[in-house]
């Protein structure tokens, strides 16, 4: 029992980070492709610009998630960036 708990405590943060990188990173990138629609660019150009930038957002998020000191901090960072993006995305949808 104790061993299982220890295992979990030891690998939990890593799994959390992997989840944050894979899914959190993608969600953030996807959100940015919608948020960019709030820019003054024409719709069509904004769609394309959002797609172009999304992979850099995704890659940056993954690096962030593994660069910071703890898993909670990794998630917090993603959420802090996601909030203004969500606001922008909400304004256009």
């Amino acid at each position: 029992m104790n061993v299982v708990v220890h295992r979990f405590l030891a690998t939990g943060p890593l799994i959390s980070r992997i989840g944050a990188a894979l899914f959190g990173g993608y969600a953030l990138a996807a959100l940015s492709t919608v948020a960019v629609l709030a820019s003054p660019m024409s719709k069509v150009q904004a769609v394309i610009a959002g797609q172009l930038a999304s992979f850099l957002v995704y890659a940056g998020a993954v690096i962030w998630v593994f660069a910071v000191r703890s898993a909670p901090k990794a998630w917090t960072g993603l959420i802090v960036v996601a909030l203004p993006l969500a606001l922008a995305a909400w304004s256009v949808s």
Partner: peptide, 14 residues
């Protein structure tokens, strides 16, 4: 292949 990987902006705007 970005339109396939990141269709979300297009789905909202187009």
């Amino acid at each position: 292949l970005m339109a396939m990987y990141m269709p979300w902006g297009g789905q909202v705007a187009i």
